[in-house]
């Protein structure tokens, strides 16, 4: 039955008198309507947009960010942070935080073995962003074995480390310059704020199903 459904659908589509249409020139539209900004402008635009979407942004330096991370957790009295010690930033965060007495569980086992713990006992997580988009205030994440998909989704607080030098103007620019066509991960994510909904009487509420808080550590040359 199933193979024949496919055949029937294709037969109907192929019998339609369809004239091919000219390919759209997406790049030309972006060239005409989105100017390439200077790094400082991109940082400002990124920050303005993601803050409008209720994320918190801290400017940090390569040296200072672990300290800022510790302060953020301390201010919220959070004593556990899920991180990836196999990454350079995860390793640095762990050494800084364990010194402060913060427990640093890691995503070692496949989710099946600790799903309930992940859902109930992990209040916060730290991941890096691959890059970001100024136009919309968007973080780009490519979850991997170190920082799997649920790490940026299940904990109520998600902290993201972003290199200010990796902010693109537009999503279109990201796709083109990073040549995403050449190979995408199983899951690529754009994140533009904490989880939210306006499904009840168009009233905005945060923390619908994903993180209630999104904090960006924006790492630049100076802070």
């Amino acid at each position: 039955m199933n193979a024949s459904a496919r055949q029937r659908i294709f037969a109907k589509l192929r019998s339609a008198p369809v004239l091919p249409k000219a390919a759209p020139d997406v790049a030309a539209w972006y060239a005409a309507h989105r100017s390439a900004e200077l790094p400082a402008e991109k940082v400002a635009r990124f920050r303005r947009h993601i803050e409008l979407a209720h994320a918190e942004v801290h400017l940090v330096s390569a040296a200072s960010w672990p300290q800022k991370l510790a302060e953020i957790l301390a201010a919220r009295q959070i004593g556990r942070l899920l991180l990836a010690p196999g990454t350079p930033h995860g390793a640095r965060a762990r050494s800084a935080l364990t010194a402060e007495g913060v427990a640093c569980p890691t995503y070692e086992a496949p989710i099946e073995r600790w799903k309930a713990e992940m859902f109930h006992d992990i209040p916060a997580s730290l991941t890096a962003a691959r890059c970001a988009i100024a136009e919309t205030g968007t973080l780009v994440l490519w979850p991997d074995a170190h920082e799997p998909r649920l790490m940026s989704l299940v904990p109520a607080l998600h902290i993201v480390l972003l290199d200010a030098g990796k902010i693109y103007n537009t999503f279109h620019e990201v796709v083109e310059q990073e040549a995403w066509v050449a190979g995408l991960p199983t899951n690529a994510l754009l994140i533009s704020g904490p989880s939210k909904t306006a499904d009840i009487q168009v009233t905005l509420a945060y923390g619908a199903h994903g993180p209630k808080e999104l904090i960006v550590l924006l790492q630049g040359d100076e802070a």
């Binding site: 998909r149 199983t186 690529a188």
Partner: peptide, 18 residues
């Protein structure tokens, strides 16, 4: 933009944890 834009290009691959 929406809060999430989720691009799925495959099931879990060997080595991935979720």
């Amino acid at each position: 933009i929406s809060t999430y834009f989720n691009m799925i290009s495959g099931a879990r691959r060997p080595g991935e944890k979720d």
